[in-house]
Nucleic acid binder design. Structure first.
Length: 495
RNA sequence: GGCCAGAUAGCUCAAUGGUAGAGCAGUUGACUUUUAAUCAAUUGGUUCGGGGUUCGAGUCCCCGUCUGGCCA
């Protein structure tokens, strides 16, 4: 190829410039998408291989994406990003006589993947660096990276093009890596307690186990409608019936409801069921779980929120009855004997939006809990003896017919984990579900009730919102910041 | 679902209703230990889409799309 390609003419079109460079590479017989490279070390290893005081280290072979290039004539510094972080490499014309000017300087761009082999040395500013004896272009990037200093800040782009966010924003990388390690640590915890992990269906003919609006879909083969699951509960209980007496699942659930800083249409739930235990046992289980995960992943049981508030997860956790919290907040020791109208009037006085008139009595009270109490529960708190209307799947408290053997674990002003003594009396369970279903009796999961009639062992059950737990452990503000690819509408501006 | 805010170069952002600019990135050149390297020159725009007002619209009005925040 003798005619010089005119990059000047197309220099405004970053994509075209890189396509032209790709064509030039191929014209010389190099296909940058078919090269191989043995990666022997990552950036983190390199620093360990060159202890303080040692000037020259062993040869390493690293690979990653070029995220910074500083060319100074016949020598250049190149930073590459791999799974361990950023590694600096030093390219010189002396060491790369045949390709430094013609290949490296002309055809390698920010964003490209390269492999670099060479001995480690320390620069005069002390940075451990690979002195390139050899390198290869491993994949050509045809699109530019975001701006090197301001990075990527547009929220829509961060979520839509998460890969760019991961390349340029170290905080995002760290947060999402923590998420991965949290899930790993949770699995190990349950395995160590002889729980088995199962996978239950996402497609349900009846969306049970929680009160939420489901997404709907259709099977052509079976010619019937399905719902995407809103909870894992009812199938895991079938596992208990089947004799899997310690069982857990980590799975995506879907709720076709509002989207907010705390709510995503699809999110990840952990549910665990332990036969012959109860909600008290679940208290020990969840506290031990969160403390273990915290120590393993963060190395500490103290976490700091984005606003600097410290949350201490170590030691024992506060335990308080739902009714006591309500009475304390409303300052009314007779709250639970007031009429609904009196409660609504009291809500107005407490600057709460007026509860809707079609609400049930317990919903008015729960509005006080949700709006005025839960957000103040920053340090870990077990809220116990919840009104029975709030969950039809738990056992009623012996000695108090109005409450159930349940706790809601609140941390960081959010409900992190509910747990119950699971209802296993098929007659009582049917009645509770019938009350909940009201006019919509067809929404009762008869197959689940049939399973209960075969006998389910007494059990404690636990649910944890993984996303919220990760928010807690990373100090994130928004649930989208701990989900790799959050749910978004269709792209307004496709390329 | 309601209200408010936003969308301008690849990225981050400017621009009284009056010629759409800057930094980085890109291109060309200088430079063998840089750390947002530096220096010189330089290319680059359907201002989210569609209507309207106006002599004139990135800017004002209406509709739509997407995003963010608050609320239900």
């Amino acid at each position: 190829m003798s005619d010089k390609p005119d990059l000047n003419a197309i220099s405004h079109d970053l994509h075209a410039v890189r396509l032209e460079k790709l064509a030039q590479l191929r014209a010389t017989g190099e296909d940058p998408y078919r090269e191989e490279w043995p990666q022997t070390h990552v950036s983190q290893d390199c620093a360990k291989l060159l202890p303080e005081g040692v000037e020259e280290g062993p040869e390493v072979s690293v690979a990653g994406r070029v995220v910074a290039v500083r060319v100074m004539g016949k020598a250049s510094f190149v930073k590459i990003l791999d799974r361990g972080g950023v590694q600096q490499c030093y390219f010189t014309r002396d060491a790369l006589t045949d390709c430094y000017d013609t290949h490296f300087k002309k055809l390698v761009d920010l964003g490209d993947f390269v492999g670099v082999r060479g001995k480690l040395f320390r620069t005069k500013t002390g940075e451990v660096t690979v002195r390139a004896a050899d390198y290869k272009l491993l994949a050509k990037a045809l699109r530019p990276l975001p701006e090197k200093w301001a990075g990527l800040t547009d929220a829509e782009k961060i979520y839509r093009q998460r890969y760019l966010d991961l390349i340029v924003n170290e905080d995002s990388r760290r947060r999402l890596m923590i998420r991965s390690r949290v899930v790993e640590s949770i699995r190990k915890f349950f395995w160590s307690r002889q729980f088995v992990e199962v996978e239950t269906p996402v497609l349900h003919t009846i969306a049970g186990g929680a009160a939420a609006r489901p997404f709907e879909t259709h099977s052509n083969a079976l010619d019937c409608d399905f719902y995407l699951r809103i909870a894992l509960e009812l199938h895991l209980k079938r596992c208990l019936v089947g004799g899997m007496d310690r069982v857990f699942e980590i799975g995506r659930v879907f709720r076709n409801e509002g989207v907010s800083v705390k709510h995503s249409p699809e999110f990840t739930m952990l549910e665990a069921y332990q036969a012959y235990s109860d909600y008290r046992g679940m208290m020990e289980l969840v506290r031990s779980l969160i403390q273990t995960v915290c120590r393993e992943v963060l190395g500490s049981t103290t976490v700091t929120r984005h606003d600097g508030v410290a949350i201490e997860l170590g030691g024992n956790w506060r335990e308080v009855k739902y009714k006591d919290l309500i009475i304390e907040k409303t300052g009314d020791s007779q709250w639970f004997s007031r009429t609904k109208e009196e409660k609504i009037a009291a809500c107005k006085k407490m600057d709460l939006h007026e509860p809707r008139s079609d609400w049930e009595d317990y919903e008015v009270t729960n509005e006080v809990f949700g709006k005025l109490i839960e957000p103040t529960l920053i340090q870990p708190t077990f809220v116990t003896h919840i009104p029975k209307e709030l969950c039809p799947l738990a056992k009623v408290t012996v000695g108090d017919e109005s409450t159930i053997d349940v706790f809601e674990l609140c941390i960081n002003g959010q409900e992190i984990a509910p747990a119950y003594s699971e209802q296993n009396d098929p007659g009582v369970q049917r009645k509770m579900l019938e009350i909940q279903a009201g006019a919509e009796q067809h929404k009762i999961d008869e197959d689940f009730l049939l399973a209960l009639e075969h006998g389910m062992p007494p059990a404690g059950g636990l649910g944890i919102g993984i996303d919220r737990l990760v928010i807690l452990l990373t100090g994130a503000v928004n649930i989208r910041d701990v989900i790799l690819f959050p749910t978004l509408g269709p792209d307004n501006n496709p390329v």
